[in-house]
């Protein structure tokens, strides 16, 4: 298995006039959960799509264990990903959703039931995915990401729509993944969750890396992670409510 590492170097991408990514570079190391935070429109989802070869880039490289995603054979055995849990055919059952992915990666059918069990989907796996709650869709998305037993995982807002029990489960699950030596990149708006989950945090704003440090380093000079975040991103948000925006000028 290739070395479990995501290396992002000098990404630059434009959407029309707006510069979405502006020389973005960071690394996600094996055995760590890296939190990926930033204001809306900072480029988190775009970065993740670029890593997965979904969006093209003008400059820079995004490598998985030294290779671009599109060059991987059976890529989901290298990188598991969850971008949008609603990305489902509503009339197809959860289990069949996992089945087609398994076929594309040449994985045994038994693996489908394993991961469905792993994420606690249970009997719901045989129901139409259109009827799932958001939390169940997240679990199905995570099951899809875990199908190929990948050394690297990329998840966009995995806590979205989860009930408290689900959040606790997710926390333990992510920590467990890192403990097994996997590299995990997790974006989240729930800053409160990060200290319990992540070892490392990459903060981005306006397509640039604002901070790339451990939780301890980041919170060293601030009262809390939230406080550190707000300070870092104050120049990098497109809008801010109320008087805050005026204070910026």
């Amino acid at each position: 298995m290739s070395e479990a590492r995501i290396e992002v170097d000098g990404l630059r991408k434009r959407f029309g006039q707006t510069l979405a990514l502006d020389g973005l570079s960071f690394t996600v190391a094996p055995g760590t959960v890296t939190g990926f935070v930033g204001p809306n429109g900072a480029g988190k989802s775009t970065t993740m799509r670029v890593i997965l070869g979904l969006d093209s880039i003008e400059e820079g490289t995004a490598l998985i264990g030294g290779r671009p995603y599109a060059r991987l054979t059976h890529p989901m055995r290298h990188v598991g990903s969850l971008l949008d849990a609603s990305a489902l055919q509503p009339s197809r059952s959860g289990r069949n959703h996992l089945l087609w992915i398994a076929h594309s990666q040449r994985l045994p059918v038994s693996r489908v039931d394993e991961v469905a069990e792993l994420v606690g989907l249970g009997k719901a796996a045989r129901r139409k995915a259109g009827g799932y709650s958001l939390g169940m869709r997240q679990r199905l998305g995570i099951a899809a990401a875990m199908l190929g037993d990948p050394p690297i995982l990329i998840m966009d807002e995995p806590f979205n729509g989860m009930d408290p029990e689900g959040i606790i489960w997710m926390r333990g699950f992510l920590r467990g993944l890192a403990a097994e030596g996997r590299a995990v990149l997790v974006s989240s708006h729930l800053l409160g969750e990060l200290p319990d989950v992540a070892d490392h945090v990459v903060v981005i704003g306006r397509g640039r890396v604002l901070a790339d440090a451990t939780i301890e380093e980041l919170t060293a000079g601030a009262s809390s992670l939230e406080d550190a975040y707000l300070r870092l991103t104050s120049g990098a948000v497109e809008y801010r409510s109320g008087t805050d925006g005026e204070q910026r000028r």
């Binding site: 059976h74 087609w100 992915i101 594309s104 097994e180």
Partner: peptide
């Protein structure tokens, strides 16, 4: 960490084909 079957270079298209057929027949 467990490692599943080593990825094979050949048969990539067959995988994609089987996968698309699964998608089709399960709707």
């Amino acid at each position: 960490m467990s490692s599943l079957v080593e990825p094979s270079r050949s048969g990539g298209f067959r995988g994609a084909l089987l996968s698309e057929w699964t998608k089709f027949r399960t709707v």
